[in-house]
Amino acid sequence: MKARLQSFWRFVRELATDDAYERYLQHHRHTHEDCAPLGRRAFYLRQQQNKWSGVQRCC
């Protein structure tokens, strides 16, 4: 039961992009060991800029 709740919570966090920064850090560790990752705020700003430069919402 507890495991289920935890996996549901993880699902909700991922859906809401609440865990985006943690995912970014994880990706960064794997691929760009040579340079320092962005801070939380810088990452958030870049993520929003990126998201809202295309068609994201519809009729």
Binding site: R40, R41, Y44, Q47
Partner: peptide, 14 residues
């Protein structure tokens, strides 16, 4: 809130 106080904490801010 999402930019300055707790960057990127979407769930609590929402």
């Amino acid at each position: 809130y999402l930019r300055n106080l707790r960057p990127g904490r979407v769930l609590e801010a929402s």
